[in-house]
Design a protein around this nucleic acid. Sequence first.
DNA 1: GCAAAATGTCCCACTATTTGGAAACATACG
DNA 2: CGTATGTTTCCAAATAGTGGGACATTTTGC
Lengths: 270, 270
Amino acid sequence: MGGIIQATEQEAETGKPQGTGTQTLLRGLALLECVAAGVGDVKGIAARLGTPRSTTHRMLVSLVAEGYLHHIPYKGYLLGPKLIQLGMKALEQRPLVAVARPHIEALAQATGDTVHLGVEDKGEVFYLDKIPGTRGLEMRSRTGQRMPIASTGLGKALMLGMVPARWMALHALLSSPDAPADRPRPADWPQFEKQMNDYVAQGWAKDLEENELGIRCVSAPVRDGRNLVVAAISVASAVPYMPDDRMATLGPLVRATADAISKDLGWIAP
Amino acid sequence: MGGIIQATEQEAETGKPQGTGTQTLLRGLALLECVAAGVGDVKGIAARLGTPRSTTHRMLVSLVAEGYLHHIPYKGYLLGPKLIQLGMKALEQRPLVAVARPHIEALAQATGDTVHLGVEDKGEVFYLDKIPGTRGLEMRSRTGQRMPIASTGLGKALMLGMVPARWMALHALLSSPDAPADRPRPADWPQFEKQMNDYVAQGWAKDLEENELGIRCVSAPVRDGRNLVVAAISVASAVPYMPDDRMATLGPLVRATADAISKDLGWIAP
DNA sequence: GCAAAATGTCCCACTATTTGGAAACATACG
DNA sequence: CGTATGTTTCCAAATAGTGGGACATTTTGC
């Protein structure tokens, strides 16, 4: 074997500096994500993971045996039922979802619009729950999805609990050149900061088509017993349903709902 | 009786006879299920998996780093956001057709009749798949075709998962004057409602030439991980092959097949 | 407040576990 | 009917994982 061995070639892409000590497990998880991304053929998976066919196949068999993957012989691999099961369980386990449910359901009914519940996770907004609106219009958002913080209503509500120093960093993320063009351009920093300060003062935030054209929303932060912002809720709808005066009316209502959830989490109003 | 086979002495418990060759991966997955079961403390997990603290902790760190677990220091571990993400992805990624195929093929072979798979789409039944019967008679139905919900076997199975309020609307569609005359007249509402309630009670539905003269069928709903009706299957044949007593026999069989598909979709029997 | 009990974190020599090349066989596709 | 891709098994080599232990940190019970 006189070849030059390209020992580790996986430090470039996603940046995984952690050389932890559970290679097989990590590879298996990467495999799951690979299938989640739509790569369902052995060859593609092997190529993407950088593992030989033999090794790849061994993991595939194990994952199928455990129900994490679904196998259609000579066709490909798909995410399996066990993942659906665990996903549902994960939602239940999070006390936040269970606690917030009745409140956001009431809010959805009162407003007729789509209501979201989300938390911050790794610098993004993570959608934990969604109650569809009754106006028949469809929203692209989905439970389990991720979105930028600084452009979404939920995200800005989360930012109300952060120090202004982080505002700038999060805002910069969206202004950077690698931000995809399919999203409306964010306001420039001075204006953005001014808006944020207004939101802090009133205790709720707005999203004026900054994440998706045609969609406006009103949001407010949820706090826990330590008075830290742990989540946010938002009411979203199409622009025609969200004129300025309605947003002004909705604001306090959304905030009241968020506060009610907060109280259920042990928060005490100052 | 001679020949008491004590094949393997440890496949009694969880039933994992396969000692495959991916120990670390399997352990990690077992760990996830352990947390899913509500065991969130290191000691408990280690005890349950039979791994030393050191090893357990190493896996926990990796799983947390990858987002499969959520960690609250000195409090415990919960299923993480990645699992929510993958679970949702699994739900949408699953092509019903592929999952249902083997089951409906088996059903077609067992009955000798035409088997259909369909979903609701825009207020109609949309045929996703069809296995032709072996009796030589041709059925007009085709994959990709649309039919009214309230007059087809598939449709009525789909209706088993709807609130009765929608039954009336769907029934009304067929009774309206603009319903073409090439279709048999539907039963009047009180009778229709009574039938539907019977179908709900037994878990499967019938179509007595209501969609096409001379064709009868037996159908049952397919549910997903959230216990929502996402599809339906039906066994259809010409009247001479479908006397009342055979339909009564077929009902439970069709329902069992539908349930088997449901389980593959993550559904758990109540 | 303090001490006991758990948990989080790191180290390292040993070896069981995983690796991956290869080759045979099955199935799909054109 | 041939080629490409997927499925399965084998096995020697060595890498990757193991688990015991020590120590820092935090919670909990008293």
